[in-house]
Design a protein around this nucleic acid. Structure first.
Length: 945
RNA sequence: GCUGGGGUACCCGAGUGGUCAAAGGGGCCGGACUUAAGAUCCGGUGGCGAAGCCUUCGUGGGUUCAAAUCCCACCCCCAGCACCA
């Protein structure tokens, strides 16, 4: 524990117990209140909470507490995404059961989370591996099966050897497994899929009605990958078969000079079987087939293909074009066949060059252009059709050209307009134990038979062996050997389990009615709480979890289970928590912190430092447990929320956490100080209450925008500065201080709820701050309040300016100054400023102001006229724009500068260490060293003597 | 290669035409308090200067009465995607 007045180890558990005993965070449906659903992505329960978690939950808790104090009925649940491979791998390593490991981890991480004092409704806790949870996965699966949304298919799938399971498309990154980074292979297997593709358009369209970061929306758009185009049917010469090719550019149909098939396309074999071309094709196909996606990408630059010895017929021009198999054509996208237009597609261009195929330009860049002499690359933009072999096409452009071709194809019955998606059905089966069993039975005579709903859940068996080889479920005889529900004969149970992303696809719905044992959730209750108003989590889930969950929500809606279109209304992706690690700039390598201060192991140059994501491998982690132990939860939260905006990366520094600790202690002592004050009142009391109101407004605005950093700055830093100013100006009224604290404490609680409760109780409140609602703070500032704030702001500015001048003056004087002569601006200067501002506010051109000024009486005085003219151009005009709104207000309200200064005369002389102070209007008492020419509105001329 | 986000003072970082020599924090310097240290408070922290001027927001140009902010080109960093027909 660090030394200080605030004792987190005593205070924090105390308040946590009180919150818990009072059940403040337990919520229920309440139709008389507006609801607010605040949620963080539920964590995978590793044994220890890390800083990323702490940051995530600190953000969510701040929002939840803010909404609560604003009078919302807030649901803020927490649970665990507790199925998944780490537990199973740990089970293999430790020779234990994944359930035991998971339960143990949940216990330990729950304790750590609770120590942070987050305001969760723990009654709603959801654990994926709980049979009362995963049984609904099984029910949904059976429903989807019934609706045709789930199906089984024998297809090439992504296989990760290290994880010994298949992966969904989204879970393969650069040809590698998203979890373990091993290379992913292709395998033909029977697998279960969900038709997320049916919802592609809906998922794309509804991106517009949700408030997600642009980055995430773009990622999802890319992933969905909508492309509009045409399906074109090429018949094959001397064959009954034909080739369907998808293209986004039907307007280039007359430029087709060959057709390319994916090497593994079944048509290839049919075309070459028994011909001289068969051998070469087989070599190419085998190369593609045996290659992992990862290797395939490496050889992408080398586009190659083989001629298949046959020709296809262009359905519109009737031209005869050769058919190739090409290694760059993906069997899985579109139809696995491409119509090649080398003049207008870069890839086809390269291929044609390599194999000496004709290149035929059919689009012109500019209207009326003829074809170019020599093409050095493909022209891929939209263009004007030329060189069409049929009438009625040349001269058409872009979308018009495309639809003309599509119409023609449709008339010929040789094609149609079509939309193609990149997203593929979601492969949900996994060959692992620690997940939801897929409720299916395989019967020799009846085939694939769903488990009857009445027999759910299909429980994970305990008599399994974790050997690290194969699916452990296959080792359980009690599990695999069953009777067929249809015929009663011997059958085998499906041993695949569901992708754990299934669990996270609807847990937020379960939270709304977590203790329902009859249903997954009650429709009305889900409709009351959903959707999630504020969702916070890592960006890494942008295209997996966040697409699956959106899909699942829509699918359940269409199954009639609720009426919600989108699960998450607003998404915030919090930034990473970084810490410096040794870094070698020349080698561009970041090293483990054990290399700190030494030389680069590779190039032997001195290592620098670089901020890097906290990771075990770099060793630059900070243990939240240790930090809480030393500084308490509030300090950790304050630091985290103040160090950076929620979305930005933040850097963990020892200095920073110490600074937060100092701040906490300073805050802690404030009520005590205020209670030691007196009854004595002062004009500055009004200022303190006015500024409190202003700060509250600023704070509220920041909170509404989830600009937590700025809210914390106001509540934990600016308000202290205000209180200091109040003191400096002679304020010491206990009552005023009390009122200030009452406004302040609720603002404090979003980052430091324990400290705020301490305050609240010191203020004599019986009720807990956590259940207090700010009822009616009249937030609009009235004229008096604005004025008094303006006056103090003026005074601060004046002091700053005078101090500056005093420093300069010192250099010109042989003794310390003892007097100050203050000359406030001439009336005519003030008049000019006011006219300028009025014109500015009216929205008229600022140049008009000068015309108006020339009509003023003072303009008749020649001496003034000359000075005013110069002043306007040089200083007044820019200054009109530089003034803060509050300063502009001072001028428009004719703030009496002399009076403000007079009232604060004593204060000014103390601050500037002077004995005498003369306050004049410029020109009133022209002395030898008068600085009245410097006097300007809000900036009096001052002379030190 | 494509897409998106960035480059701001000693460090972190706010800032999207005038409120900007540039918030806030850290560090550093000075002052008050103190036996001292710590904590706290006050002030300073580009240069020169009786209040103004000069230089500065990745680099170089441009628009404007006015540019960190808008436009063009270039350099560098980060993230995502990558033969998608």
């Amino acid at each position: 524990m660090e030394s200080g007045d605030y004792q987190p180890s005593v205070s924090e558990p105390k308040w946590q117990k009180k919150w818990n005993d009072a059940g403040i965070f337990i919520t229920d449906v309440n139709n008389s209140k507006a609801k607010f659903y605040c949620l963080e992505m539920y964590p995978y329960p590793s044994g220890k909470m890390h800083m990323g978690h702490v940051r995530n939950y600190s953000i969510g808790d701040a929002v939840a507490r803010y909404k609560r104090v604003q009078g919302f009925n807030v649901i803020y649940p927490m649970g665990f995404d507790s199925f998944g491979m780490p537990a199973e791998n740990a089970a293999i390593a430790e020779n234990k059961h994944p359930r035991d490991i998971t339960e143990r981890n949940i216990q330990s991480i729950t304790k750590q989370i609770k120590r942070m004092g987050f305001s969760y409704d723990w009654n709603r806790q959801v654990k994926s591996h709980d049979e009362n949870y995963y049984k609904w996965n099984q029910l949904f699966f059976l429903k989807f099966l019934e609706q045709g949304l789930a199906y089984r298919d024998f297809a090439p799938v992504n296989w990760c050897n290290d994880c010994s399971t298949v992966l969904a498309n989204e879970q393969v990154k650069n040809g590698r497994c998203w979890r373990c980074s091993a290379e992913v292979e292709q395998k033909d297997m029977s697998q279960w899929f969900l038709k997320i593709t049916d919802y592609a358009q809906d998922l794309l369209d509804d991106l517009e009605i949700i408030d997600f970061p642009e980055k995430v929306k773009l990622l999802q758009q890319d992933w969905l990958g909508r492309s509009e185009g045409a399906l074109i049917n090429f018949s094959i010469e001397k064959s009954k078969s034909s080739i369907d090719a998808f293209t986004t550019r039907p307007d280039t149909i007359f430029g087709v000079t060959f057709v390319t098939l994916a090497p593994e396309h079944p048509l290839c074999e049919e075309l070459v079987l028994g011909t001289e071309f068969e051998e070469e094709w087989r070599i190419l196909r085998d190369e593609v087939l045996t290659m992992s996606d990862f290797d395939r990408e490496k050889v992408l630059k080398d586009k190659k293909g083989v001629f298949l010895g046959r020709y296809a017929i262009n359905p519109i021009s009737g031209e005869r074009v050769p058919i190739y198999a090409g290694n760059f054509v993906l069997y899985g996208y579109g139809t696995g066949a491409v119509m090649a237009v080398p003049a207008h597609d870069q890839r086809d261009f390269e291929f044609a060059k390599r194999y000496g195929i004709q290149i035929k330009q059919v689009l012109a860049k500019n209207k009326g252009d003829k074809e170019s002499e020599k093409l050095t690359g493909a022209f891929t933009g939209l263009g004007w059709m030329i060189n069409s072999t049929e009438p009625g096409y040349d001269g058409k452009f872009g979308e018009d050209a495309k639809s003309t071709v599509i119409n023609a194809l449709e008339k010929l019955n040789k094609g149609k307009g079509m939309i193609q998606w990149k997203i593929r059905p979601w492969l949900i089966s996994r060959q692992r134990y620690w997940g939801t069993p897929i409720p299916i039975i395989h019967c020799k005579s009846c085939g694939v038979v769903p488990v009857p709903i009445s027999e759910l859940p299909v429980l994970l068996p305990d008599d399994v062996e974790f050997t690290g080889h194969g699916n452990p479920l296959e080792t359980s005889l009690t599990f695999t050997n069953v009777k067929c529900p249809d015929c009663g004969g011997d059958a085998k149970r499906e041993t695949d389990t569901m992708d754990t992303f299934v669990d996270s696809s609807w847990y937020f719905l379960r939270f709304s009615d977590a203790q329902n044992y009859e249903k997954a959730f009650e429709k009305d209750i889900a409709n009351y709480w959903m959707n999630v108003d504020f969702y916070c989590g890592g960006i890494e889930h942008a295209q997996m979890h966040l697409i699956y969950a959106r899909f699942w929500t829509k699918a359940l809606r269409d199954a009639g289970m609720h009426d919600i279109d989108e699960p998450f209304q607003r998404l915030l992706c919090q930034g990473m928590v970084n810490k410096p690690a040794p870094y070698c700039a020349p080698c561009n390598v970041t090293y483990n912190i054990k290399y700190s201060g030494s030389n680069c192991p590779t190039c032997n140059q001195k290592l620098g430092e670089r901020s890097a994501k906290m990771s075990k491998s770099l060793g630059n982690t900070v243990s939240p447990e240790e930090m809480i132990e030393r500084f308490g939860a509030d300090t950790v939260r304050l630091f985290i929320l103040f160090a950076a905006q929620p979305e930005a990366e933040m850097e963990w520094t020892d200095q920073g956490i110490h600074a937060a600790w100092k701040q906490i202690n300073q805050l802690y002592k404030i009520p005590e100080m205020i209670f030691s004050w007196s009854e004595e009142s002062n004009r500055i009391d009004d200022w303190l209450l006015a500024i409190a109101k202003k700060r509250y407004n600023q704070w509220k605005e920041s909170m509404e925008n989830v600009n937590l950093r700025s809210a914390v700055q106001i509540a934990h830093y600016d308000m202290i500065a205000d209180l200091n100013w109040y003191s400096r100006r002679g304020g010491r009224n206990t009552k005023t201080g009390h009122r200030f604290l009452k406004i302040w404490a609720p603002m404090l609680q979003i980052a430091t709820p324990h400290l705020a409760e301490e305050w609240w109780s010191m203020l004599g409140n019986q009720q807990l701050l956590a259940e207090y609602e700010i009822s009616d703070l009249n937030t609009e500032l009235n004229l008096d309040e604005k004025l008094i704030i303006a006056e103090e702001t003026y005074l601060k500015g004046f002091l700053e300016q005078s101090r500056n001048v005093k420093q300069m003056a010192l250099k010109h004087m042989d003794k310390r100054p003892t007097e100050i002569v203050i000359e406030t601006s001439q009336t005519w200067k003030h008049r000019m400023a006011k006219i300028g501002l009025e014109v500015q506010f009216s929205g008229d051109s600022i140049k008009d102001a000068f015309n108006l000024i020339q009509k003023e009486v003072f303009w008749n005085d020649q001496a003034i006229r000359e000075e005013a003219s110069r002043l306007w151009k040089k200083k007044m005009l820019p200054q009109l724009f530089k003034w803060k709104p509050s300063q502009k207000e001072m001028i428009l309200l004719d703030l009496d500068e002399n009076k403000v200064l007079q009232n604060a005369a004593l204060f000014i002389s103390e601050e500037l260490e002077l004995q005498k102070i003369h306050i004049l209007k410029a020109g009133e008492e022209e002395g030898v060293d008068s600085k009245s020419k410097f006097a300007f509105p809000l900036e009096p001329g001052v002379v030190f003597r």
